[in-house]
Every structure is written in structure tokens, then in C-alpha cells.
């Protein structure tokens, strides 16, 4: 008897379960999968959203570009969804390109980042980039190029550090983190469409709490990567009389605090390979020249950063032990401008 009742119970529940469900079901080939999301603003003050969508059937065309406008990004995305032939699935978006006039507005940019982070569909892993050109132009330029895939724009950022050390890929969650961080600012890559290749990397914008403070060139960006202890292999440097390749790098930072004045001693070790050199150039000369160049470059950036109170190196993180949590909130304005950095470069031959 009891067993029978249990059985009825199971049957009832199974029917209930079978009756519910069916909201998320849509076959993958009935979904449109955009890869790149471009955000800009029209002259009328509305948001304009551009999507780059791969085309699967057609051989001659790899992707199409769809745009929509709305008062908010959500409404613009919703409009595209309404007008699209298929259901649009935003979960595969890998790159988000923001137009510069939006990016230069701190409030707008902060809102965009917060929206992207809060959105359940758009993954927070997707990378961010800023462009000075028209977003639509950048996204549609892919169709004129030969031998590219629909995912080429994303692949551009995903070559891997060993292949293209200058490219600084910044995911949404890191930008979001920098909105709240008091000790570390972030660099967002700057791109434009190329003539033969899909994209050209132009450098990075430095953001402090969502506000663009400065713009760095690719070789400067590379130095910042080194200082953030990201291994730099394969970088080729031209010294005029010789060109070398960095084969390994490591950095040691040692913070100290004297009379509330922070100072940092840092040792950068670089191993290099000499690729080509003019006649009569000794190893010693190459090493000295490289040391000089890197130090000069570093102090140049540091000076600019200290003037704009922007800690792109994340030096403040090193002082977590020395300065209390609440004090550290004022790192950028109170401590960082007075920071003394004792920067030493040591170059070794492989």
C-alpha cells in the first residue's frame, strides 16, 4: 500500500516536471552567435550597439555586422534581438569595443563596465578594447580581408604572450576590479582597423577608476607588463646598432616606508639574445645601452604617472603589509606622488 502511494507520488511529480521546462531550449544552429560587441553613442545621445556575427552558410562572406540603437545598452540589445531572424545568444561574445568618445566620459564608461559585469549573458571573461575610429568600421573591416575567420578579431588578442608580447589583453572583470581598486590602475588596449590585417594595435589607454588618464605606446606597455611580473619572452628590441630578443625576465620588488614616505627598490633581470649587430659592437656595449634605454623609459613613465596620480604599475599593492587598509585607500593621492623608486636593470647574455 505504502509502496503504491510512493509510486503515485513519483508519477505526479514526474508529470509536473515534464510539464515545466522549455524556456531555454533552442538548438545551436537556430541561435545567432555574435562574437564582438561594439558600443558607441549616436549624435542624438542614444546608445548604438554593433554586433559582429559569423555567417556559417556562405563561403564568400565570413561575417555580418548588425546594429541597433536604444536609450540604454539593454534596450539596444533587445531591439537587435527583436529584429533578428534567429534567437541571439550573447554568451559567446569575446571582445567588447568601446568608442573613444564614450570611453573618455568617466561616468558613461563606469556604467558600461558595471552593466557588462552585471549582465548574466555577456561573459565577464570577454576582452575590452577602445577604438578611435568608428566602431562599425572596425567590425566590418574583417570582410575585406583575405583568409580570415569569423573569430579573427578575437584571435588577434589571443595569440599568447610568447607570440606577441606587446598586446595587452584586458578582460571586463579586470576593468571592473580597477573601478574599485585603490592601488592599481589598468591599461585598456587601443585598436584600429588595419589595411592588410584585421586590426592594428596602437597602444593602451590608462584608466584610473574608469577615467582615461594617459595613453601609452606599445613599447611602454611592454615595460609595464614586465614590472607587473608577467614573463616577457620574445620581445624584440632594436638598439640602432644591434637588435636583441628578450628571452627571460624577472623582477624583484622590495617596499619600505621611511617617515611615511614610501620607497621601492626594484631589480629587473633580463636575459637577452643578440639577433644581429653591427661590426665591432661588444656585448658590454649592448648591455649597457639596453640598461640605459629601459631605465630611461621607466623613469619617463613613472614621472608621467606620478603627475597624474595614476598607479599603473600596481606598486601600491606591494605596500599592503606596510600601510594599513584604510590608509592605503589614499595611496594614489598621498603616497604615490612621493614614491621613490630605486630602479636597477641587470642585463645578461644568454
Amino acid at each position: 500500500m505504502k509502496n503504491n502511494r510512493l509510486f503515485q507520488f513519483i508519477v505526479v511529480f514526474l508529470t509536473v516536471i515534464l510539464l515545466c521546462g522549455c524556456w531555454d531550449i533552442k538548438d545551436i544552429n537556430k541561435r545567432t552567435i555574435p562574437l564582438v560587441l561594439g558600443i558607441s553613442k549616436t549624435n542624438g545621445g542614444e546608445y548604438k550597439v554593433t554586433l559582429q556575427i559569423p555567417v556559417l552558410k556562405n563561403e564568400s562572406q565570413v561575417s555580418k555586422v548588425v546594429t541597433g540603437t536604444g536609450e540604454t545598452i539593454t534596450s539596444a540589445l533587445g531591439k537587435i534581438r527583436t529584429n533578428s531572424e534567429n534567437a541571439i545568444d550573447y554568451t559567446q561574445i569575446r571582445l567588447i569595443v568601446v568608442q573613444n568618445h564614450l570611453a573618455h566620459n568617466q561616468k558613461e564608461f563606469t556604467n558600461i563596465v558595471k552593466f557588462l559585469m552585471g549582465s548574466e549573458e555577456i561573459p565577464s571573461r570577454s576582452l575590452m578594447a577602445i577604438t578611435d575610429e568608428n566602431v562599425e568600421g572596425v567590425l566590418s573591416s574583417i570582410n575585406d580581408k583575405l583568409g580570415v575567420h569569423a573569430s579573427s578579431i578575437y584571435d588577434f588578442f589571443n595569440k599568447g604572450a610568447d607570440w606577441a608580447p606587446e598586446i595587452f589583453s584586458t578582460p571586463v572583470w579586470e576593468v571592473y576590479r580597477s573601478l574599485f581598486s585603490s592601488t592599481k590602475d589598468i591599461a585598456v588596449p587601443l585598436i584600429r582597423s588595419g589595411r592588410n590585417t584585421v586590426l592594428i594595435f596602437e597602444g593602451s589607454d590608462i584608466l584610473k577608476k574608469g577615467e582615461i588618464m594617459d595613453r601609452l605606446k606599445p613599447e611602454e606597455i611592454q615595460l609595464i607588463r614586465v614590472l607587473q611580473n608577467k614573463n616577457e619572452k620574445g620581445k624584440i628590441e632594436s638598439l640602432g646598432f644591434a637588435s636583441i630578443m628578450v628571452s627571460n625576465s624577472s623582477i624583484r620588488l622590495k617596499p619600505s616606508l621611511n617617515n611615511d614616505k614610501p620607497s621601492l627598490s626594484s631589480n629587473l633581470n633580463i636575459k637577452i639574445n643578440v639577433l644581429e649587430r653591427n661590426d665591432g659592437v661588444t656585448n658590454k656595449k649592448i648591455m649597457e645601452e639596453l640598461e640605459r634605454i629601459i631605465e630611461e623609459r621607466f623613469f619617463h613613465i613613472l614621472k608621467r604617472m606620478q603627475e597624474s596620480h595614476t598607479d599603473i604599475f600596481g606598486f601600491g599593492q606591494e605596500f599592503q603589509q606596510l600601510i594599513s587598509y584604510n590608509e592605503l585607500k589614499n595611496w594614489r593621492d598621498e603616497y604615490f606622488p612621493d614614491l621613490k623608486v630605486n630602479f636597477e636593470v641587470e642585463v645578461n647574455m644568454e
Binding site: M117, P123, S124, R125, P171, W173, Y176, R177, L179, F180, S181, S182, Y325
Partner: peptide, 22 residues
């Protein structure tokens, strides 16, 4: 992954942390 300042602004920090992994 995020640091204390950012974590308090997230609704579900662990989920976001998992989502950030690529």
C-alpha cells in the same frame, strides 16, 4: 582574484570568480 574592495560590490563573488577564468 578581485580584492576586498571589489568583492563587496558583487552579488555572488564566488560565481563571478569562476566566471572570470578562461
Amino acid at each position: 582574484i578581485f580584492g576586498q574592495d571589489t568583492v563587496v560590490t558583487l552579488k555572488n563573488p564566488f560565481l563571478e570568480a569562476m566566471d572570470s577564468i578562461d
